[in-house]
Design a protein around this nucleic acid. Structure first.
Lengths: 223, 223
DNA sequence: CCATATGGCAAAATCGAAAATCTCATGTGA
DNA sequence: TCACATGAGATTTTCGATTTTGCCATATGG
């Protein structure tokens, strides 16, 4: 009888995920002070447990822990966004090349499946207006992750994941949806993957990320 | 009157640094179980404070936090070492190119100064036998960091720093000192830097890191 | 003999209170 | 008026106790 451990989530782990999502999806604003007492009631955990989470988020870079003056949601800046984007391109571009070289049929299957879900979601987003950003972004992540999943380095995948989340926050804070353009680029990436065209994929990816950065910076209050 | 806040280190911060150093320099062995009660007396901090540190170290990747079964010093493996090394090469190589392109005289000064200290230290290490590994490694870090310090991306520097520390642990656990070879490679790197020879520097760096990896794997119990 | 249940011990996770620290408004003297 | 001390209140940091969970030896039933 398999039971699959549905929710053996500890208090800490639950609160951690909620806070993390709240930061990435902008419900906790950049620069916002995080007072323990307020978090305590909002996330239903004691200060000790909270400090543990906040410390984790701090070393992930989503929160800053200044001296003994408490915690703050990491502020955003145009410079930081560009650096994050450049880092994502460096890591994802490299991983893409490795993955294309090593990917087997199993990998192709994952890529095609992930793209299918993403494409469906993007069509829905275009039809109705902004359906479910959280789910959409998950599919976006799953597609990009599938593309590089055969790169052969756990370390590379983890580092990329950390950077991707920080990048994602900028997208969500700015609530960007580039619709058709992004969808076309995703399809181009899929084509490149199936043809193992590394150079083409990196080119598309660069346009994909850079385009998104400019689009984000355009309509926003980032200096 | 400047006072420069000499040691306003909190209990937590002090313990954090000690544990971190103990892991990197092998005084806490890979795979070792970290029981709260034992750590409590060894590092003179309460469980809550300790958990906070351990969580930080866990998200840095130096410790693993399995379910609700406590903490373990991240185990080592040949595969992981190779992945870490490849990641270091990717990041440091890229940063090197950026830094060479943008470095001004101020940067050159930092590089020359850092190399001078390192070279001196390496000469002492060759004369007497293993003088002070901790200090030596700090100078090694300072030199490599100086080389890439003009790369222009804070994000890149931080990510590189995190990877460098994990790489360092392998070196220290294996207590590697390649002496003359490493010293020559450091000098070659300095030459490349002053000539802004990116290609040459990346070649030397690759040999530097790969050589060290093989040397580490050779004499060790890593599968 | 194997599988599963039970109980007791060790360890981790969580909590709220106590101590340390910071913030900021007010007061004092030059 | 300005520089600097003072102290109350708010906030963070640290602690030890309590609750929860995991682990393992033993017992029980098939």
């Amino acid at each position: 009888m398999l039971s699959l451990t549905p929710q053996p989530l500890s208090v800490g782990e639950t609160a951690y995920r909620r806070i993390r999502a709240d930061i990435i999806f902008g419900r906790l604003a950049p620069g916002q002070k995080l007072k323990l007492d307020i978090l305590r009631e909002r996330y239903e955990a004691s200060v000790s447990t909270l400090r543990e989470l906040l410390s984790r988020l701090a070393s992930e870079g989503l929160i800053e822990a200044e001296g003994q003056k408490g915690f703050v949601v990491t502020p955003v800046s145009a410079t930081n966004l560009r650096e994050i984007a450049a880092m994502r391109l460096l890591l994802e571009g490299h991983a893409l090349a490795q993955s294309f070289a090593a990917g087997d049929m199993e990998w192709e299957g994952r890529v095609v499946a992930a793209h299918h879900k993403l494409a469906l979601m993007e069509r829905r987003m275009l039809a109705r207006d902004r359906d479910d950003p959280e789910l959409w972004k998950r599919y976006d992540w799953e597609f990009h992750h599938a593309l590089i999943s055969a790169c052969g380095s756990q370390v590379l995948l983890e580092t990329h994941g950390a950077i991707y989340d920080k990048y994602l926050r900028y997208q969500m804070v700015a609530v960007v949806f580039r619709g058709e353009i992004a969808a076309e680029e995703h399809e181009a990436l899929l084509d490149c993957a199936l043809r193992r065209d590394t150079k083409g994929a990196v080119t598309v990816l660069t346009r994909h990320v850079d385009g998104c950065v400019e689009h984000t910076l355009a309509g926003e209050l980032l200096a």
